[in-house]
Amino acid sequence: MQKTSTLTEVAEEAGVSLITASRALRGVGRVAKETRERVLAAAAKLDYTPDMLAQKMRGGNSGLVGVFVNGFRSLVMHELLSAINDEARRLGFDLIVFNADHFDDARRAGTAEMLRKLCDGLLLLLPDANDGLLDKLERAHAPCVLVSFAARPIDLPVVLGSNRMAAKSAVEHLLGLGHRRIAFIAGTSFTGQSEERQRGYEDALRAAGIALEPAYLRQGDFNDASGFTETQALLELPAPPTAIFAANDAMAFGAMDAISDAGLKVPDDLSVVGFDDVIRAAVVFPKLTTVRQPLNEIAVRAVAELVDAMRNGRAEGFRIELPARLVIRDSTGPAPKG
């Protein structure tokens, strides 16, 4: 196996001191252009690669942002990750994406800790409130930002879109169309966002003087299949709903499929509203009325807050909630008569 070149060998090849070679390779300090070029040429000749972990241990920066995710199933996850990558690269950072069901799991904790030390800061996308890593980061005030997290108060930076107020506006739209039997399909509770959206749903119904109907509350799993299954159950009720508000677009897509499968039409027989406004929402038939989360703005703000935390060396707790808005398309219409 080929021997790994060292910084000392690069310095000797370039005819400079060790500190000058280090500064030239990191692009910091006052190093003459000719000297920097000579050092870079020596590094290329020797196939030298900096040891980022050693550099971090010496108090330097790796230029890396760690992005921790609990699975890639979410359509929102993909859009957030893409926007975060664009913004981080624009600012000169590279991403390391680490996926695990739980980062405090015995098989993953070592990797999570290594990446925490290697990266200049962490972004946790849609984190699970039950993951012990959150408690560890909170105690350390480690440079990090939680993205789209609403499960509980936490002394760390949180950036998310509006959930409760946006959900309330979605249900108010259905009420304005004459719907009174409105169902809600919830998602999982890991990030707390589904609960916030359910509170918005309940707020709107109470404000309209409509009693909550337990049979209209269904538990989904933030995916198409659960939206399909729960809608089938709703359609079998003696007094089925005339409208369905799903806690995300994926379940709304499943709901529309179930309605079609039952020989009914959206929105003639049932109206459907989603949440997130993923790319697919504008191309399905009928096009989905949904709440548009400001995913790009969430990503840009999260990266900006992380850069501030990295600069300060610690993260202080605060919550930034960016406004979401209802996008009315073709999946909602007047309540059917009778």
Rank of each mutant, 00 (worst) to 15 (best):
Q219P: 01
P294Q: 12
V273A: 13
G200I: 01
R58L: 14
T290Q: 07
E305R: 14
G200R: 02
G132A: 09
I259K: 03
R107M: 08
F222E: 02
A44L: 10
T188C: 04
M57C: 07
G71N: 06
L175F: 04
P127W: 10
T4S: 14
G27T: 11
A186W: 00
G227A: 07
H141D: 08
E172T: 12
A11T: 08
F93S: 09
A100Q: 07
L288G: 05
L175Y: 05
D249V: 02
N312T: 10
K33W: 03
K337D: 15
F103H: 12
L115N: 07
L18W: 12
V16M: 03
E87S: 10
M256W: 01
K168P: 00
E202H: 07
A215I: 01
S189I: 11
T6D: 07
V76N: 09
L156A: 10
R292V: 00
I279P: 02
D104Y: 08
A258L: 03
F93C: 00
Y216M: 12
A233C: 01
L146A: 07
N312Y: 07
L126T: 14
Q293T: 12
E113R: 14
Q55V: 06
V159T: 07
G110A: 15
E236L: 10
F98Q: 13
P336T: 11
L53W: 05
R30H: 14
L137C: 06
T49M: 10
E12D: 15
S331Q: 05
M310S: 05
G274Q: 04
S162C: 04
V307T: 14
I328C: 08
F184R: 01
L177N: 07
E321G: 04
A282M: 08
D269Q: 09
A262N: 10
S162L: 00
D47M: 06
A281L: 02
D276A: 07
R319D: 06
G187D: 08
L137S: 05
N130R: 14
K45R: 15
E172D: 15
R73H: 14
V283D: 09
V284E: 04
R180C: 04
L137V: 05
F285A: 13
R218C: 11
R180G: 12
L137E: 01
R292Y: 01
L123A: 08
P157M: 04
P323H: 06
L18E: 08
P214D: 13
L205V: 05
L137I: 09
A250K: 10
A302D: 04
F68N: 01
P267A: 11
M1S: 15
T35P: 05
A43S: 11
F318A: 14
R58K: 15
E297N: 10
E37V: 06
F318C: 10
G254C: 07
P127R: 12
A42D: 06
V31T: 10
D221N: 14
T242R: 06
L95V: 06
D101C: 04
L237Q: 09
M1T: 13
N296W: 08
K265F: 08
A211Q: 13
D105V: 08
Q198T: 06
G178S: 10
M52G: 03
L7Q: 04
L75P: 13
V171C: 05
R38Y: 04
N130V: 09
T289I: 06
A246H: 02
P214K: 11
D86W: 00
D257A: 12
A129F: 08
M165R: 12
L133V: 15
